[in-house]
Amino acid sequence: MKRRIPILIVSITGFLLTVQYFCPHPYSEAFYNNALDWLVIIGIFAMPLGIYSMVRIQFQKVARQESGWGFAVISLISLFVMLGLGYTPKCLEAGSFFMKLFEFIYIPIQATMFSLLAFYIASAAYRAFRARNLLASIVLVSAILVMLGRVPIGMAIHPIFPEIADWIMNFPNMAAQRAINIGLGLGAASTAIKIVLGVERSYMGFE
C-alpha cells in the first residue's frame, strides 16, 4: 500500500497533465494552474529539510572534531549571519551590510570558482587532447580551428578562420548535437511514459 498509492497518484496526475497539454478548455487550464500552485507549495516544504540536514552534518563535524571541522564552523557562522542579516530592515538596499557582504565577498568568491575553469581547461586540454588515431586527430584539428576562429586574432591571421569555425559549429557540430538531442528527447519521453505507467519507480527511492 505504501508503494501503490504514490504510484497511483503519479500515474493519474501524469495522465491528466498529458491530456491537459492537448486540451485548451477552461477546466483543463484551471486544473493545470492548480497543479502548478501545488508544485510550488510542495517544493517550498522541502527546503527546511535540506537546511536541517546541512546544519546537522556541520554540527556533528564540529562536535566530533572531524577533519576540516574548522570549515564547518565557518559554514555555520556564514549561514546564520546571512540569515540574520536577511531579516534586518532595508537589507536589500544598496550600501547595506547584507549587500556589502553579497557584493564584495559572495560575488568575488563565486566568480573565482568559475574562473578556475580556465586553468582546468588548459590543463585538461594539454593532457587529453592527443592525436591518438584518425578520429582523435579530426577532433583535435577541429578544436584548434574553432578556438582560432572564435577570437579576433583568428580574423587578424586570415578571414577564413572565422568562416571555418562557423562552418564547424553550424554543420558537423549541429548534426552531432541534433542526433544526441533526438535520442535524449525520445529517452525523456520514454521515461515519462514509464513513470506514468508505473514501470519506472526509482524516483521514489525503490526499484
Binding site: 535520442g183 535524449l184 525520445l186 520514454s190 514509464k194 519506472e200
Partner: peptide
C-alpha cells in the same frame, strides 16, 4: 555514459523486462 546511455541505465542494470521493453 553519453546522453541516453544514462537513461538506459535502469533497464540495463535491472534487466526488468518491462524496462527493457520501453528501451
Amino acid at each position: 555514459l553519453i546522453g541516453e546511455e544514462l537513461y538506459a541505465a535502469s533497464a540495463y542494470l535491472g534487466r526488468d523486462p518491462l524496462l527493457l521493453g520501453a528501451l
